[in-house]
Every structure is written in structure tokens, then in C-alpha cells.
Amino acid sequence: MTVLIDPPNWPGPRGLMWSHLVSDRSLEELHDFASRLGVPERAFDRDHYDVPETVHARAVELGAEAVSSRELLLRLVASGLRRRKRR
């Protein structure tokens, strides 16, 4: 299993900082992990989950690999799972 989480660097709702949660293996793996973490399905956006800073430590406890935002994006793109917004 390779689920990745970047630092909570992104400002978001409720005055919290947010992280991205991705898998570099499969979306099924990502959805399973998010479910175990208690992240609602509505937090999924094309190829990642947006998760608040309040769950970052728990994600790492459950086995997510903490990486930089750059590393997360590089590995997501390399996996072939990156889904860009359509223009």
C-alpha cells in the first residue's frame, strides 16, 4: 500500500489548513484508506481527497507516507492516476 499525504499547507473551509491524500497505486486503495480514516466521499476530487489538518497525524498512524507537496504530485503523475481539470 502506498498512500501519500502532503503537509497541511492549503487554506480551506472552517479556518483549517488542508492536505491532499493520494495513492500512487490505485484509486481503490485510496478510497479504502479514506474510508478507514473516516473521510467522507464528498472530499474526493478527481484523483485525491482534501483532508483537514486535524486528520493528518491519524493518516500517518494508519500508514500514509508523509511527503512534500512536490513529491506527492510527482508520484501521482508517475502513477498514471493524475486527472487534470478539463478546460
Rank of each mutant, 00 (worst) to 15 (best):
L30V: 07
L30Y: 10
L4H: 00
R84I: 08
E61V: 10
R46C: 05
L73S: 05
G15M: 05
F33M: 04
D32M: 09
L21I: 09
G38H: 12
D6R: 02
L72K: 04
L21Q: 04
R83L: 08
G80H: 06
D6N: 08
E71Y: 00
H56R: 13
A78Y: 00
R36T: 06
A43Y: 12
W18P: 05
H20A: 00
E29V: 07
V77F: 09
K85T: 15
V77E: 14
D6V: 00
V39D: 06
D45P: 11
M1N: 08
K85L: 15
P13H: 07
W10R: 14
V67G: 01
R14N: 13
S26W: 08
K85Y: 14
H20Q: 02
D45I: 10
L76G: 02
E29R: 09
A34E: 04
D24S: 15
L27E: 14
N9D: 10
R75A: 00
P11S: 10
P52Q: 05
R14K: 12
E29S: 01
V22F: 02
L81T: 05
R25A: 11
A64N: 07
R14W: 10
S23I: 08
G12H: 05
R36F: 08
A57C: 07
F33S: 03
R58N: 04
V60L: 04
T2I: 13
L37I: 11
R42W: 13
D6T: 04
E65N: 05
F33A: 06
E28I: 07
L74E: 15
T2R: 12
E53P: 02
G12W: 12
R75M: 00
F44M: 03
L76S: 00
H31M: 11
W10H: 13
V67P: 01
P8G: 01
G15H: 11
R87N: 06
E29Y: 06
L37E: 10
R46S: 05
S23V: 09
A59E: 12
A64S: 08
R46Y: 11
L74C: 07
S79Y: 00
V3W: 03
L62V: 08
R82P: 12
E61A: 11
V77W: 11
F44E: 07
E29C: 03
S35T: 15
W10N: 09
E71C: 00
H20G: 00
P40G: 10
R14D: 14
D6P: 01
E53M: 14
V22S: 06
R36G: 12
R87S: 10
